[in-house]
Every structure is written in structure tokens, then in C-alpha cells.
Design a protein around this nucleic acid. Sequence first.
DNA 1: TACTACATCTCGCAT
DNA 2: ATGCGAGGTGTAGTA
Lengths: 245, 245
Amino acid sequence: MDRADFIEQFEQARAAREMLVFFCSCEINYSGRAEAHLPKGDRLIVIKQDGVFLIHQPEKGNPINYLKSGAELALEKFEGHLLLKGKYLPNKEFLDVEIYTIYDLLRRKLEDGQQQTLMGNEADMSDAIRDNPAMIARDFKPVSREEHTKVGFLDVFGHDGKGNLVVVECKRYTAGLSAVSQLHRYVAKIKQLKGTNKVKGVLASPKITSNAEEMLKSYGFEWRHVIPPHRAARHDKKQQSLTNF
Amino acid sequence: MDRADFIEQFEQARAAREMLVFFCSCEINYSGRAEAHLPKGDRLIVIKQDGVFLIHQPEKGNPINYLKSGAELALEKFEGHLLLKGKYLPNKEFLDVEIYTIYDLLRRKLEDGQQQTLMGNEADMSDAIRDNPAMIARDFKPVSREEHTKVGFLDVFGHDGKGNLVVVECKRYTAGLSAVSQLHRYVAKIKQLKGTNKVKGVLASPKITSNAEEMLKSYGFEWRHVIPPHRAARHDKKQQSLTNF
DNA sequence: TACTACATCTCGCAT
DNA sequence: ATGCGAGGTGTAGTA
């Protein structure tokens, strides 16, 4: 594509707050949270209406370079080719793209005010536990869920019939060492805050690594095998009837 | 764009392993690690040569829906419109896109074998500490760096002149509670493994949150103010001469 | 703004 | 394949 034509398309797209995507050959320098350089190659460049700036290589899922929403963009001529300069000032980030060839370009105003509905996240898991406290223990009485406290963010918090406070940490996937550390932190804080040692820690997840289980036991905590609601719905019909009502 | 034309373009692009991007109006269902639904709206769809499948709304940086490299795609007619079905079998993930209108399309084989060079990551930071151990303590002697052990991944490990083992955990940015927990885990493991209590924990980062600092002190650990190399290069000329050699 | 934790996290590396 | 931790993580929610 002709250089002057590209400049015009770029300016019009930005002025109209349209989405702009193009294939090009380019070389990239990033400076900000790190320093990075990517030699010349073919890429897809996406510029969104809100300033989001994405550069994708032909493989792999993540953009190789990017700036966040709110970035400012400027296109200028530079030593016989084009220089597309992006900056995101809040983080002092700069993304400079030397563009050698523009192959193809699309631009369009996209209309989309929709939000995704999602189920099966960690909040849904703590919901299920609150509604079926027997998952944790016969005598477990949850009193709060997803609560931000001075202690931190407790997934489920309650007590049992023996005068123990109970802290439950949920993980949607295999719980590892960091999950145990997190639980340990919460339990320690609760002990300190309430001035008691009668605090139990429970980790609820569909799976746990052997190292994590060992560490969990060394702290005197317990693990409960809990399958997140949406997966229970597909893998276990009985579980579904428990968790979805 | 005409439906039959789109089908042909899609099939050709996939057969030739080209990158394919298009604007469309669509409705999306995802099932796999969670269950999600996104009502009809305008989006950018990107299909990469390796099967990466990205759907972007007109704002925000991350794709609203996606499948990873290796996904299989199939396009079929469905009740008067088109259905683009993606599946990623290793995780039993399914991404179905009902396409109502195709606005524009680009496809091209992109040639790019380049890799990004990056400096200023955590490894560079542990390098700098290894080369300037006085950053941690006058008498600190590093013996290893970036080492995978049974204990975990130790950024810098060494000893001081008083017979203490020293574990250093680096963070490129503000260290929070989880960084302290991580350090605590490493120190505990080292104590257990070496059968000694003479193990010191040091957290090195440019910043630390107040809660994290409090927790750090309660464990008897210490914090060192360390600026990652690439930022030191821009903010402190003296630091540059130390760290870049 | 600072702080915290989730994420359909992704990715690389080592076992 | 699993385990583990980094990431230019991004993003949401709260104090």
C-alpha cells in the first residue's frame, strides 16, 4: 500500500475513532517497564478505538508488543519509511514501530456495548461452598463469603461446632504452594486479630500438588476435594443438584 | 461480504496457513475452563496460522474470547447464518461463534521468525545483585543465582560472614504480601533441608507495600531497596556503571 | 492512588 | 504431562 494513502487512512481512522488493523513489515522498540527490541518481520497491528495498541506475530496467542487503553499514537515520516510512535504516559512507556511495508489495511467503527456473562469462576465456587457447607465439614457454619477485611480477602469464613474459626481458601484448579502460603497468611492474621489459636485452615480445590499437600499438613490445615460448579454440572450429575440450587 | 465468498476465503486461508482477520457482527459461546456467553455485537476476529483464535471487542486490551495455539477450526452454515466452531481438545474447550454479518476481511501469509530481545527482567536484577552483593549486605557472598532446587526457585542464594545462609527474593516492582510469603516459604524449606535456623531472608525490590513490610519484619526478614538495572540506567548514572558491567 | 487477588491468565523451564 | 514461578502480566474491586 502507498505510504501517503496509509497516512491518510491512519489519520482518518484515528479522527473517527475507528478500529484500524493492518499487516506490515516492521521493526519494533519498546521502552518502559523493560527495554525490548524486535528485528524486522511481518506482523499484524491492531489499533483500537480507545488507543489500545497491539502487535501480533503470526504465531502464539499474546501480542509481542502492546500499549494499554489510553495510549497516544502519532505517525510520521522517518528516513524514507514510516515511524508509528505510541506512548502511554502514566507508566512512561514508549512503543516505536518502524514500518517498512504496509501490505493491507482495514478500518471500521465497531458497535458493541455487550458484556460477557461468565460462570465457573472462583466466586461461584465460594457460593457453592456457602450453600453447601457440608463440603467443608459436617458442622461448618459459614458466616461470610468473598469478604474484604483488614486481614485480606477471605473466600469463605465461618466456624465449626467446636469453637474453631474456619478459613476456607478456594482454587479453581490445582492448588500449589502459593495457595497454601496464602491460606497460611490468612489464618495467621485471623489468629492475631481475634487473639485466639483456635483457627482452622481449609483449602478447597479439585486437585492439589503433592508438595502443596505436604506443606498443608505441616501447618495442620486440611484439603477438601471440591469441583467448581460449572464443571460439576458436566462431570457429576449429583454434584450439580447440590451446587446449582 | 457475501457468505459464500467468506466461506471460500476462510477455507483458502486455513489451507494455506495464512493469517485471517475480519470484522463481523457475532454472538459467542465458550465452554471449557468456564462457561461464557457474549450477546450479539461487532468484533474483530483474528485467526493465526497456528490455530490461535482471538476475538476482540472494540475496546480494552485483552481478547474477550480466545483459544490457544493448536486449536481446530471449522466453518459451517447454520440456520441462515454462519457458525464458526473452534475446539481445543487438550483442555476440552469449545468456542462457538455465530456470525451474522461479515463486514471486511484480510488474509495473508506472514513471514516472521524473529524473537524479541528483552532486558530489565527479574533475571537481570538477580544478575546485578550477584555482581554487586554489597547491595544486600557488606559481607554477603552469593553462591548461586536463578537456581531450581527442591525448595523452589531461588533468585539469589548465599551466606554472610557470620555463618548465616541468606536467601534473596527479587521483585521488579512493588513487593506485596505474596512476595513475603514466597520468601518465608523458601527460608522455611532451607532451614528444614539444611537443619539449621541460621537462615536470613532478604527481599529486594524498588518498593514494598506497608502491609508487606510489616509482615516481613514480623518474620525477622529484611528489605533492600534495589532498582532493576534498565531503570537504574535511566535514573541513576552511577548505578548504570555498576550494573551494566 | 495504593493495595490485593483473580485470570478461560499465558508462557517458559525443569522434572 | 505436571509443577512452579515470572510477566512489560491485565483487570476488577476496595480502602
